Amino acid sequence: MRVGELPLRLAVIGDELVAGVGDPKGLGWVGRVVARTPAAEPVTALTLAVPGETSTGLGARWEAEVDRRLSPEADNRLVIGLGRADVAAGLSLARSRLNLANVLDVAEQRRIPAFVVGPPPGAVADGDKLAELSAAYADVATRRRVPYVDTFAPLATHDQWLSDLASGDGVLPRQAGYGLIAWLVLHTGWHAWLGLPDDGA
C-alpha cells in the first residue's frame, strides 16, 4: 500500500501545548498544522493531551491510548509533542532521553511512523535547562532517523514569541505563539514525512 492510498490518522500525544491551551481560537499548533496539510482526504488528528505531564507519564500511557485510535483502514501516524514538565519535575537528562527513546523504539517495532516536536521556551529561568532538554531530545530522535522539530532555539529570542507569552500568563503561548510553532512544524519536514506535496505554508 503506497503513501496516500489510505486516509491519514494522526495520534498526537503530549501535554497542554498539544491541546492548544491558551489559544483564543482553540486551534493550537496541531489545528493549524492539520489545516495546512494538503491530503486528498480530510486528516483525522486525535489529540491525547495530559496537562503538566512529564515524559515519564507520557511513556507510561501512550501505547494503550494510541492503540484504541488506530485503524487498519488508515495510514496511522504518531506525533509526539514534548513539553517542559521534565524540567519542573527535576528529571535528569538521561531519564528524559530514555523515556523518549522507549516511545520511539516501540513505535518503530510496531511500524508506526513517528514525528517529534520539541518543547518551546517558557519561563526565562528555565532557559538553559530547556535548551539542554531540547538538544537531548533532538539527539535521540536523530539517532533513530525520526524527524525532530526544534522549537526552542528559533523561539528563545523571537520577539513575537516573547511578547505573546507576556500577553498571557507568561508560560503558555496564545494565538501568535501557536502560529509560530505551527510554522516551524510545517517547515521542518512535515510534508515529506507524510509523503505529501508542500503547499508552501
Results as ranks from 00 to 15, higher is better:
Gly122Lys: 08
Gly179His: 08
Pro119Glu: 13
Ala60Ser: 15
Ala156Val: 15
Gly20His: 13
Gly90Ala: 06
Val21Ser: 14
Arg84Leu: 11
Asp198Asn: 10
Val50Met: 13
Leu194Ser: 05
His187Thr: 13
Ala123Ser: 13
Leu17Pro: 01
Arg97Tyr: 00
Gly118Met: 01
Asp126Tyr: 08
Ala101Met: 07
Ser134Cys: 13
Ala60Thr: 10
Asn76Gly: 05
Asp105Ile: 07
Pro38Trp: 11
Ala40Asn: 13
Leu162Phe: 05
Arg143Val: 06
Thr54Gly: 05
Leu93Tyr: 01
Tyr137Leu: 14
Pro197His: 02
Val30Ser: 10
Gly22Cys: 12
Pro173Gln: 13
Asp164Val: 10
Val12Ala: 14
Asp86Val: 05
Val30Met: 09
Tyr148Phe: 15
Gly168Tyr: 12
Leu6Ala: 10
Lys25Trp: 13
Pro24Ile: 13
Gly118Thr: 01
Arg36Val: 06
Tyr148Gln: 03
Ala39Gln: 09
Glu63Ser: 15
Ala74Tyr: 01
Trp190Asp: 07
Ala176Trp: 00
Ala125Met: 03
Ile181Lys: 02
Val3Pro: 04
Arg77Gln: 07
Leu155Pro: 06
Trp29Cys: 05
Arg36Ser: 09
Ala88Asn: 03
Arg144Asp: 02
His191Asn: 06
Leu78Asp: 02
Val3Gly: 05
Gly31Asp: 05
Asp23Glu: 05
Asn99Ser: 06
Leu194Glu: 03
Ala138Cys: 01
Gly31Arg: 04
Val117Arg: 08
Gly189Phe: 08
Leu10Asp: 02
Trp190His: 05
Ala88Ser: 08
Gly22Val: 11
Val171Tyr: 14
Ala11Phe: 02
Thr188Trp: 05
Asn102Ile: 13
Ala35Thr: 04
Asp86Cys: 02
Ala141Asp: 08
Asp139Phe: 00
Tyr178Ile: 01
Gly179Glu: 06
Gly90Pro: 12
Ala39Leu: 09
Leu78Val: 00
Leu48Pro: 01
Arg61Ile: 06
Pro7Leu: 09
Ala11Tyr: 01
Asn76His: 08
Leu10Gln: 06
Trp193Ile: 02
Arg174Leu: 12
Leu155Val: 04
Arg95Gly: 04
Val34Trp: 03
Val146Phe: 04
Thr151Pro: 09
Phe152Met: 12
Arg9Glu: 08
Pro121Tyr: 10
Val185Glu: 01
Val146Ile: 10
Leu194Val: 09
Leu162His: 03
Arg97Trp: 00
Glu65Ser: 06
Phe115Asp: 07
Leu82Tyr: 06
Asp199Arg: 12
Arg143Ala: 09
Asp139Ile: 05
Gln109Ile: 11
Val66Met: 09
Gly59Asp: 03
Ala123Pro: 03
Leu98Asp: 15
Ile13Lys: 00
Arg77Ser: 01
Arg174Phe: 11
